[in-house]
Design a protein around this nucleic acid. Structure first.
Lengths: 225, 225
DNA sequence: ACCTGAACACCGTTCAAGT
DNA sequence: ACCTGAACACCGTTCAAGT
């Protein structure tokens, strides 16, 4: 039971907990890791928090709520007056860059929610995190569909999954890298693909790029397996 | 220590283990869950396997090796004679569909590797799984770059991350759904985006789709938060 | 009022004892 | 030769005792 609490110590425990949860996930995080880092006894933990699980849940839900708040303000389609006259694809790119910045600044919390709580009743929290992003993407893309910007054959669900998959791949890299990655170029690439695809020039489609051309090229430097 | 072993029982334990690991991840999986499911005592487990971790590692590495084998044969760019004359984007789409089918048929193992081993020395195994896909994508895209199919501004790393992100998002859905999703349509969507982008018609770019058009549309049905 | 640390329960692992 | 289950260690949680 969380009973009386020295709020100072509670703050130290919160800071210690997010670090330990990020490093190890919920199950492998030891209460003694957290209390050692905060400089108190193991028992003191239970003066401040119901349980290890309850603390993890509280911190993840707060993070997801903060994310939802960010997306409401800087969602994948901009809503403010600065967006007027801005190309929708540029709006998407701007919002993606803002989201990645936001995640970078909170990468310890990001690492915590991605490390996850597999095998516990809180396993769904990582899914909720990803769904928060996907839902924001979905809402924006549905608006674009209604405005007839988007090829009608492409479902909003698919486009939202693609954009979210890219963000999540990127988020995994943010957690691993020590210095802030240069996001701008990749966001620009995403913009180009949304507008024109990934291939060289549309007017050459269906004429050149068959496997005969591909396999005539010597194998690329085998940077992969 | 894995000592002598009734190979029959070993098979039962392997079957039980993948089920329990998929359901709970490495840390939350109890050895007694596995042995109960196989109908033996807890101690018998250690006649067959070094430890719970070692078994998890063995099964994940086998799965990743099988995946690598599949990708070598049906990698994101086809290599066989059937590929001659096939458009490269259709090759990518065909290979993606084959990969998703392969993953669907092994979705218990997929779930096991995604459930993960956070906080243990085996935490990197989920990353290795994703990297196996990313490396295969990267190799194919580099070949396409060498054949000058791809817009040169778009790096292979970015395109591989995008394709992999989509596959991983899809893999998460495979694990959750009970009946095999219809993959073909989504693969077709991916194909269209690679070739022409996601927007309605390239010749309307930079003229219509500013936020003024978007925000004039009544808010879409709020299927998201 | 707040904190400590011994004690308890749970589960991974070991091993002496069964068949 | 193979399996069992009691015993041990580790860690989440509790609580009687300190200050």
């Amino acid at each position: 039971m969380a009973r009386q609490a020295n709020p100072n110590l509670q703050g130290q425990l919160l800071d210690a907990a997010v670090t330990v949860f990020a490093e190890r996930g919920l199950l492998a995080a030891k209460v003694s890791d957290i209390t050692d880092l905060a400089g108190v006894s193991k028992g003191a933990f239970y003066l401040h928090f119901e349980s290890k699980e309850a603390l993890y849940e509280q911190m993840c839900r707060q993070f997801i709520a903060d994310l939802t708040g960010h997306l409401a303000g800087h969602g994948s389609l901009l809503c403010g007056p600065e967006a007027l006259g801005m190309h929708v694809v540029d709006q998407l790119a701007t919002a993606d860059e803002a989201l990645l910045d936001w995640l970078w600044q909170r990468r310890v919390h990001l690492q915590m929610v991605l490390a996850g709580a597999a095998g516990t009743p809180l396993a769904h929290l990582s899914d909720e995190f990803i769904e928060a992003i996907e839902n924001s993407m979905l809402a924006s893309i549905e608006r674009m569909h209604c405005a007839s910007c988007v090829e009608p054959m492409l479902t909003s669900q698919f486009l939202a999954a693609m954009a979210t998959g890219l963000i999540v791949m990127y988020a995994r890299k943010l957690v691993q890298s020590r210095e802030r990655p240069a996001v701008t170029r990749d966001v620009h690439h995403f913009r180009r693909i949304m507008m024109l695809g990934a291939l060289l020039t549309p007017d050459q489609l269906d004429t050149l790029w068959t496997s005969a051309a591909i396999h005539a090229v010597p194998a690329a430097a085998p940077s992969a397996h």
